[in-house]
Design a protein around this nucleic acid. Structure first.
Length: 288
DNA sequence: AGCCAGGCGGTCA
DNA sequence: TGACCGCATGGC
């Protein structure tokens, strides 16, 4: 049995609910004020009372790992002031202040976002949950590890089929093979700078600009990545500018280039606030 | 009952 | 380049 201990971490400018609910991670669940998830193969529970300046942690991981995972080392107020360039992002920041990006495990992040293509968050969560339950290991009653590359590459077809991943299944199996064989070295790729790391990732079939940017931002520590999915595209098109603003047809590629230069070095944070901000009614009515 | 989803790769003009 | 398709199907 594991030995987990309870401790608290002092926090500032951190909102646990926004951080875990904003759609950047898919395996955390909240019940009775406690969020529970799996970090580095071990079950972690965290809780923040509303407005409290401490985070309660129940985990066998040391405090430093939790602080690292939640990017508590980021100077969030500084970052937010850097990206707060207009009324729209200001509203998103006001609505969701305390949202921090998370340092996810690169392998889990890669597969998760490959599975996220042409899907929606509830379905993504269900699919990843099934993948872990069917192909992963039960590390505690009802809690499962994310399957490693070798295990996933060799999973039997029936199990994969039961995960209900649709056309995405064959893509992740192939990627798993590349990682298991060492043909794709995620740790080495993470050490490259943004454009080179992105280029490397996109050599893999099934990884395009958007998936690559998500992996770069959420697990490779590249704050200058700006993933453009359908939601961010809709926000940018309707609020920031349409065809004429971009000088020709608006494409996701152009939006990505615009976002990186407009919001600057921490545009990845801006992207996540825009993405999550889309659900704020104040902003939605502004878009209408 | 449809429509659309944190896309990608290929094809065709 | 940019537009259009097929992919496979769950969730609302």
């Amino acid at each position: 049995m594991h030995q987990s201990s309870m401790y608290q971490i002092p926090i500032i400018d951190f909102d646990l609910d926004h951080t875990l609910d904003c759609g950047q991670v898919f395996r955390w669940e909240k019940k009775d004020d406690w969020w529970t998830g799996v970090v580095r193969g071990s079950v972690v529970s965290v809780r923040q009372d509303t407005g409290a300046d401490v985070l309660w942690v129940n985990s066998d991981l040391p405090e430093g790992v939790i602080r690292w995972y939640f990017r508590l080392d980021d100077d969030l107020s500084q970052i937010l002031s850097l990206i707060n360039r207009d009324q729209y992002i200001n509203a998103a920041i006001a609505g969701y202040r305390g949202l921090r990006l998370i340092r996810q495990d690169p392998w889990e992040c890669l597969i998760s976002y490959m599975l996220a293509t042409a899907s929606n968050i509830p379905r993504i969560k269900n699919g990843i949950s099934r993948l872990c339950q069917i192909v992963g290991d039960e590390i505690e009653p009802d809690y499962y590890s994310f399957p490693d590359a070798g295990t996933l590459a060799n999973a039997c077809e029936d199990d994969i089929s039961d995960c209900k991943l649709g056309f995405r299944a064959s893509r992740i199996i192939k990627a798993a093979g590349l990682v298991a064989e060492g043909e794709l070295d995620l740790d080495a790729t993470a050490r490259l700078d943004y454009p080179e790391a992105k280029q490397q990732l996109m050599l893999v079939k099934g990884i395009g600009e958007k998936v690559a940017d998500c992996v770069l931002l959420f697990s490779f520590d590249k704050m200058g990545a700006f993933p453009v999915d359908t939601h961010v595209e809709q926000v940018v098109r309707s609020y920031y500018g349409d065809d004429e603003f971009f000088g020709g047809t608006v494409t996701k590629k152009k939006i990505g280039e615009w976002g990186r230069s407009y919001f600057g070095n921490y545009c990845g944070y801006a992207q996540q606030y825009l993405f999550y901000g889309k659900r704020l009614e104040g902003i939605r009515s502004d878009l209408r």
